[in-house]
């Protein structure tokens, strides 16, 4: 309790032309946690990720990462601080190869200059070797799915599940401390989904990442999350363990009430 939480968000507001995408959100993640953010569509979950990763500027509020403010930083600077994310609608560099995808995301961890590349210095060769090796290492995390001949295939030919895996690998390659996963198992079949859930657990237990994930699949949320935060209309309406949250009447209303409206 003495050290500050890894990620701390206080009084966060995001307003798009009158629409409150997020209002007065407080949020904290301790190191080594897996926190799930759930909520109906349009609740502001992805906006929340966009704000933390610097792609959307908050209207009001504070974001601290390891005790330092992230406000006003460009997304690449935030990635350099140690936060990496994936995207809900998979956004790979489709025309680059699988290996290049994970090599490019080590950009902020490498120091070579253009001159090194031009002169083909030993520093350049060493670093390229390292980048390549690290890329293969993170791809190897997913078994043989993204290795071997896949290294040189463009990302656009991958299957949907593999694209999701590559997105996670690409985020891992930035050597983050905090991983933001936006619906990591969306569109996967139950077997693939269960397998990935297990891998996400491994990401925390073996690789030491702290993880925040957005997920609609409640079985995944139940299986791996330490804590759950429920967003609705941009506000956090409940937080706690999965068991606590799933019994919360407000949460049930947010989901079921919406469903009743839909009929």
């Amino acid at each position: 309790m003495s050290s500050p939480p890894m990620l701390e968000i206080a009084g966060l507001h995001v307003v798009f032309g009158g629409l409150h995408a997020l209002s007065d959100l407080d949020f904290a993640v301790e190191e080594g946690e897996i926190v799930a953010v759930i909520g109906p569509n349009g609740a502001g979950k992805t906006t929340f990720f966009n704000v933390v990763s610097g792609m959307v500027k908050p209207t009001q509020g504070q974001i601290y990462f390891e005790g330092r403010s992230l406000l006003g930083l460009d997304p690449n600077k935030i990635t350099a601080r140690g936060i990496a994310r994936t995207f809900q609608n998979v956004r790979l560099f489709a025309n680059m190869t699988v290996l290049e995808n994970v090599m490019v995301s080590q950009h902020c961890r490498t120091r070579q200059r253009m001159l090194d590349a031009l002169l083909y210095t030993s520093r350049f060769r060493r670093e390229e070797e390292q980048v390549r090796a690290r890329g293969k290492e993170v791809l190897g995390f997913f078994g043989t799915r993204l290795t071997g001949y896949r290294f040189d295939q463009p990302a656009s030919v991958l299957s949907y599940a593999n694209r999701r895996r590559l997105e996670i690998a690409r985020a891992m390659a930035t050597s983050p401390k905090l991983l933001l996963l936006d619906e990591p198992v969306a569109g996967m079949n139950p077997v693939e989904s269960a397998e990935l859930t297990q891998l996400i657990g491994k990401l925390r237990d073996e690789m030491g990442y702290t993880i925040v994930l957005i997920e609609h699949d409640m079985s995944v949320v139940r299986d791996i999350s330490d804590r759950v935060v429920v967003l609705d209309h941009g506000e956090a309406i409940a937080r706690g363990t999965y068991a606590e949250v799933s019994a919360d009447p407000q949460v049930i209303e947010a989901y079921l009430g919406r469903a009743a409206d839909g009929n």
Binding site: K57, P58, T59, D74, K77
Partner: peptide, 10 residues
């Protein structure tokens, strides 16, 4: 528009 001042690059 926004409250938060952007950190300025070169």
């Amino acid at each position: 528009m926004q409250l938060t001042a952007k950190q300025r690059t070169r």
